[in-house]
């Protein structure tokens, strides 16, 4: 912990990592709140895993085809948005098949990614960093892209607050009031897709859902309004990512896993505390 703080001034990669955590936390709190209240965690899971296809494909293009501009992060954004639109479209066109499509997108994305990585010469370190996160390897160029995505997600998420609140609370009523619910559903899934990309750099594909939903789930226990929940879960995500990085740095533990375990411990503690205090009150 102390080592992390002293090294912070000397190593720029630590400062980039910290800044990535801060940026990702804001988007995570806002979009995680929508995801939890609209109950689309599994959609977020499918989008997250499909990202491997995009990242693997982009890396393959870079190494084998020499397309140096095709950064894995760009591939991730493309794959996430495509998956989001596919899943949203299926819900709108044929509601009853949504969960099948979620499973298909999830697995097909993973399979495509694995094949690309298998055919890309070099170390398989790529795969590990995509799956489990590589926050300490964020470059200044990545940081610009991350900052841009963050601004886009936060801006859109807040601008459409009233409409998204209505859609999450009571979709049918929103539709009757003339809101284009399908359009807002697509928008919400695209915001989820971009947020998932931001979080993948922090904790990796496998653990994204936890970081997206646990802070929001904790916050929902303590919030009376949706925007309270957003602020609180952003702060919690910030604490978890920064704390996880600081704790894991000294003993050289994987940062992503440490972040998730801290978040998970807080989630369970909150549930127990709420249960106990509820009993006392009753």
């Amino acid at each position: 912990m102390a080592e992390f703080i002293t090294d912070l001034s000397g190593h720029s990669f630590l400062r980039y990592a910290l800044l990535t955590g801060v940026l990702a936390s804001i988007a995570c709190g806002i979009v995680g709140t929508y995801v939890v209240t609209r109950r689309i965690t599994s959609v977020a899971g499918a989008i997250a895993h499909s990202i491997l296809g995009g990242m693997g494909g982009a890396r393959y293009c870079q190494v084998v085809l020499g397309w140096t501009w095709f950064d894995p992060l760009v591939g991730a954004v493309a794959a996430a948005l495509v998956s989001a639109v596919i899943i949203a479209w299926v819900r709108i066109a044929a509601q009853e098949r949504e969960d099948t499509v979620i499973g298909a997108v999830w697995a097909i994305g993973m399979a495509a990614g694995l094949l690309f990585i298998f055919r890309t010469p070099g170390y398989n370190e790529d795969l590990m960093s995509y799956l489990f996160g590589s926050i300490l390897m964020v470059s200044p160029e990545d940081l610009w892209l991350i900052g841009g995505l963050d601004a886009l997600v936060v801006g859109t998420g807040l601008l459409f607050y009233n409409k998204l609140l209505a859609v999450c609370f009571d979709e049918e009523f929103a539709r009757i009031r003339g809101l284009r619910v399908d359009l807002y559903h697509i928008l919400l899934l695209c915001l989820t897709a971009l947020t998932v990309v931001l979080l993948v750099t922090v904790v990796g594909i496998v653990m994204v859902i936890a970081l997206l939903t646990l802070p929001a789930a904790i916050a929902s226990q303590l919030s009376r309004k949706l925007w309270h929940m957003m602020v609180l879960s952003s702060l919690l995500t910030l604490v978890f990512t920064t704390g996880g990085m600081a704790v894991s740095y000294g003993p050289d533990l994987p940062a992503g896993a440490t972040i998730i375990l801290i978040a998970g411990a807080c989630y369970i503690t909150t549930l127990l505390a709420v249960r106990v205090s509820g009993k006392v009150r009753a």
């Binding site: 601008l159 009233n162 609370f169 009523f173």
Partner: peptide, 29 residues
Amino acid sequence: TALDPLFPVSVKDVVLMGRLGSLSAMGFY
């Protein structure tokens, strides 16, 4: 029964949803 009983929203915000039809382009009441 069709609604999520735990949804964090105030009474006033629920009633404001009745005004969704007149929401400005910027999305404010």
